[in-house]
Design a protein around this nucleic acid. Structure first.
Lengths: 210, 210
DNA sequence: CTGAATACTGAATATATTTACACGCATGAA
DNA sequence: TTCATGCGTGTAAATATATTCAGTATTCAG
């Protein structure tokens, strides 16, 4: 499926060079000017042809929506630069925990350290789990899963609130237990109240105020 | 000139991830939406700040005219952190802490997570620092240095024993304070007793039994 | 010869994007 | 206090870009 015309190869090469040199894909106008076309449509049709042949991917409607597909850049690509684990700060009301807006940073952390696998870090606020050695400001290492067993420490969502507590289920009722006598357990009736388990704690990382 | 705000770092990280994931820099609108701003200008101001501080370069008038400058994204990750941090288990009598024989494993841990820099991990045994949130089996993240200030948690060596305690010095005397009323402080006279500070704690990692 | 694909010019239009302007709120320094 | 800076919300242009439409030529397989 990869039989690019000489012209098409030239256009493709131009796109590659442009990204290299400018850090972003070219516009139709830039392609036309760069290759000597006097009509934007010349560039457009070439792009369509390249997309059809699988050399690039076009994002409709967006500026500079050209993406190289076939192997061109070194290796690795998206997979190798895994970017580490996202650190979730405050969870904005109504947004999924892993939504971009909640991500404060990314950290490389060896996944071999945690079992089951670590999926993200959550900054803990409050002292309700103090006696479990989880303090205010600690980063909780979380494995993303909706299933929890009794006794596990979970990241739970109650409406717009995200909380870290020990999980205990009995029939139709779930209790979220703090590890600090100054706080009270939370009782949830699964029939009425909304409860979402966002994950289970598989570790803790503390990095300041020792 | 490189003193980025936490917010600015987040914006920068978002841009890096966007380029990684979409092959082109984000627009102001995409930044705003991704980070939860409801005004485009929030993104614009951050970009100006980042450009002023030399983190990025802006192309006036062009769509997605954002360019990363400082080295951050390329690879670096696994390669740069090469062998990762050595995990020290029990320290054999008479051997230096970092001696080969004491190294149990190596783990990749992002050095940006700790300050000052992390040099090795030490498996803590015992509950003498319980009230500081350091439990039995935890991995103490240690910065190697012979200097400690009052109040810091240190890795100290007394003869053949390696212990983790809070450091407090007064003139010719050093006291190593546990963070657990069930244990007693250790008093050392620098004139007579041998004391070596192997490093100061800069973090804690817990990976099991939550 | 004929239709299909490639390779364009030129023009028009609907969006996408940048960028300026007006304000609000908090914090820390002078 | 007042001033500067960081961090936002909101609105409104100006203009950068993508995309469609109408044509013209050339090449090539059927």
């Amino acid at each position: 499926m990869n039989e690019l015309t000489v012209k098409q190869q030239r256009v493709l090469a131009f796109i590659q060079r442009h990204i290299q040199g400018h850090g972003r894909p070219p516009t139709r106008a830039e392609i036309a000017q760069g290759l000597g076309f006097s009509s934007l449509n010349a560039a457009e049709t070439h792009l369509r042809a390249l997309a059809r042949k699988g050399a690039i991917e076009l994002t409709p409607g967006g500026a500079r929506g050209i993406r190289l597909l076939a192997e061109a850049s070194p290796e690795g690509g998206p997979a190798a630069t895994a970017a580490g684990l996202p650190l979730i700060g405050r969870v904005a009301a109504g947004s999924p925990v892993l939504a971009e807006q909640n991500v404060e940073a990314h950290f490389e952390v060896d996944s071999a350290l945690f079992r089951p696998a670590a999926d993200y870090l959550l900054r803990v606020s409050g002292m309700s789990m103090r006696d479990a050695g989880i303090l205010d400001g600690d980063l909780l290492v979380v494995h993303r899963t909706p299933e929890a067993r009794n006794g596990q420490i979970v990241v739970a969502r109650l409406g717009d609130e995200v909380t870290v507590k020990r999980f205990e289920r009995s029939d139709r009722r779930v209790r979220l237990l703090p590890a600090n006598p100054d706080f009270s357990p939370i009782e949830i009736r699964l029939d009425h109240d909304p409860l979402v388990i966002e994950g289970i704690a598989v570790g803790v990382i503390r990095n300041g105020r020792l």
